[in-house]
């Protein structure tokens, strides 16, 4: 397995308007920055959408990307999340081919990973797994042995890690913001 790239997540809050995704992805294309994964969804405030973009931190000039993105008029806010300081999740759906007698083996694997069987066919099953992207990577690798018919991942979404200290303690430590 190829070494895992060091990934960084940009959480971009944008105005919920036509063409905004094209502006954001177009900016990456024009400056030759590569996108590793991308997820878009509306937020709880209907005026905004959130675009979660994962990039290879080694290949991407993060500071330049962030600054260029921020120049887009429809971009409201950008959070640059280091995987070490954030909570990241992703969802995977895979239809897996199962030979006679293999099915129980697959179910076992799905259980170990705390996934779910969401559909069962005559010679294949569809499994769902939500979790940390790394777990999904591992699962994907293991399930490959059975024979993947189709596989889709949503791309990750992320939020910054919350403060673990009570406010009183926090002020003692002196949080730098």
């Amino acid at each position: 397995m190829a070494p895992r790239p060091k990934l960084h997540t940009l959480v971009v809050l944008v105005e919920n308007k036509a063409g905004v995704l094209a502006r954001v992805s177009g900016l990456f294309a024009r400056r030759a920055f590569n996108i590793y994964s991308l997820a878009v969804a509306p937020t709880d405030d209907e005026r905004f959408s959130r675009i979660t973009i994962v990039v290879d931190a080694e290949e991407t000039p993060l500071e330049q990307v962030t600054k260029q993105l921020f120049k887009l008029i429809n971009v409201v806010k950008i959070d640059l999340l280091d995987p070490d300081d954030s909570v990241e999740r992703e969802l995977l759906l895979a239809s897996v081919h199962t030979e006679e007698g293999e099915r129980s083996e697959l179910i076992e694997l799905v259980n170990v990973f705390k996934g779910t069987i969401v559909d069962v066919g005559h010679d294949s099953v569809t499994v769902m797994l939500a979790g940390k992207p790394r777990n999904l990577d591992d699962f994907e690798e293991l399930v490959r042995a059975f024979g993947i018919v189709e596989l889709q991942r949503t791309g990750r979404v992320a939020l910054p890690q919350l403060d673990k200290q009570a406010p009183r303690l926090r002020s003692v430590v002196g949080k730098v913001s």
Partner: peptide, 14 residues
């Protein structure tokens, strides 16, 4: 037009 000129304008709008 908006697509073609997106990367050569500070902003554009339909």
């Amino acid at each position: 037009t908006v697509g073609i000129t997106r990367s050569v304008t500070k902003h554009n709008e339909l």
